[in-house]
Design a protein around this nucleic acid. Sequence first.
DNA 1: TTTTATTATCGTTATTCGACGATAAACGAA
DNA 2: TTCGTTTATCGTCGAATAACGATAATAAAA
Lengths: 124, 124
Amino acid sequence: MSTENDPSNEQLAAIAKALAHPARIQIIRLLLSKTSCIGGEITHEVGLAQSTVSEHLRILKAAGVVAGEIEHPRVCYSLNLNSLLPLMSLLQLVADTATTVAGSDGLCCPLTPQSCDQPSRDPE
Amino acid sequence: MSTENDPSNEQLAAIAKALAHPARIQIIRLLLSKTSCIGGEITHEVGLAQSTVSEHLRILKAAGVVAGEIEHPRVCYSLNLNSLLPLMSLLQLVADTATTVAGSDGLCCPLTPQSCDQPSRDPE
DNA sequence: TTTTATTATCGTTATTCGACGATAAACGAA
DNA sequence: TTCGTTTATCGTCGAATAACGATAATAAAA
């Protein structure tokens, strides 16, 4: 059963942090939509300064979310699914637990009077 | 309903930002593991100052990731799956695209010489 | 009423982030 | 060689974050 390779809290937070900016989400979506190689096309698309976009790409690369292959003058970026798997696992675990324990409100675990409230149960 | 309601980049980044700290990941894991109501037990568990943990809980609540129900003197916290669904959808989309397009390396989309390398062809 | 227990908020400080322009580096082409 | 194109790095500034202790707020219980 316990086949848990359980990434550390720091690891999971680092992945989330890499995704914690609108420009970086946009870049990920761009890489998803494009099936061809895009280099600095990203820069034009996000609408920020070239140095800023380069910094966002650096952050994504440092987190392993994207990989960059140097082409002639440009760089060919791609997504790396493996880097996102730990976060996906955690979210999936939340989803499984929530749908098992909770109802359609999406609330997980306690929060129901039956499981949460035990101290002093007044009749009425 | 359709599953294509495409949350904004800002929305997705906000969810990721809520998860972008080890203490908050730890809190989420705590809420996952416990099936009973835990109030300030979280504070003791994460090992940070009470005010700091309260701030992390505030951030999680503001993002909708957790909900807090006031009990007698304590607060009963629970996870809210619905708030995480947009991020899950994006990650799932990455996973689907990656496993479809890429091989076992987890790299998505381009990065293969066939699709990537079409460099400076001819100007029309 | 006061006490007690728990949580939220305030004020401060050190660190990090995000954005920009300017500049450097890399390398094929001319 | 020099030029041109693309990307990375540097320096700086303002804003945001994380952490803490101290304090306030809340509400049940004495």
